[in-house]
């Protein structure tokens, strides 16, 4: 881990909240890694905390692992350009998604649909992939301590300035 970040830069915040695809990973107490698709990402106003929203039922093991270990790795990719960033935290906590989640998720699904549309995936495809029960949303919040370039290539994994 590189040093604890103070806050995410405006550029990185804009990327996270833009037309991107999001995946979250954690691991359970026994060390097994698991992962799942995230529906939206929200950066706190001071840039110091990240909240991601995901459907709880299809990601039950992931949500349980986060609750168990607090470990979180979030990959944020813009499918049309392959540009990709990974953020990591170890204080992740699970909570029910609040009232504010629905518009954030709706905004993100629209952005995701737009971007994968650029590389040939239909609206039906992306809407189906992102379909969820709004009553089944969980919120995972963590402090991003490190950020890594994840764009495919030999530099994938290099630390970047958050």
């Amino acid at each position: 881990m590189v040093e604890r970040t103070r806050s995410l830069s405006p550029a990185l915040t804009a990327f996270l909240e833009g037309d991107v695809s999001l995946m979250l990973a954690s691991r359970d107490a026994a060390g097994w890694p698991t992962l799942g698709r995230v529906l939206a990402c929200d950066v706190s106003s001071d840039g110091g905390r990240l909240t991601v929203y995901l459907a709880r039922t299809p990601n039950a093991a992931l949500v349980a692992a986060v609750a168990e270990t607090g470990q979180a790795a979030l990959v944020v990719t813009k499918p049309s350009t392959h540009h990709s960033i990974q953020l990591k935290g170890r204080d992740a906590a699970v909570a029910p998604a609040g009232e504010g989640a629905a518009p954030v998720v709706a905004h993100h699904v629209t952005g995701f649909t737009r971007d994968v549309g650029l590389i040939g995936f239909s609206t039906a495809f992306s809407r189906t992939l992102m379909a969820h029960d709004p009553r089944d949303l969980a919120a995972v919040t963590f402090t991003p301590e490190a950020a890594f370039d994840q764009t495919p290539g030999p530099r994938a994994g290099d630390p970047v300035e958050p």
Partner: peptide, 18 residues
């Protein structure tokens, strides 16, 4: 596809697989 792994210290990681 995406793959989740963890290092010896238990820090998880995701990679996209071509």
């Amino acid at each position: 596809a995406a793959i989740a792994t963890a290092d010896r210290e238990g820090v998880p990681n995701i990679s996209v697989l071509s």
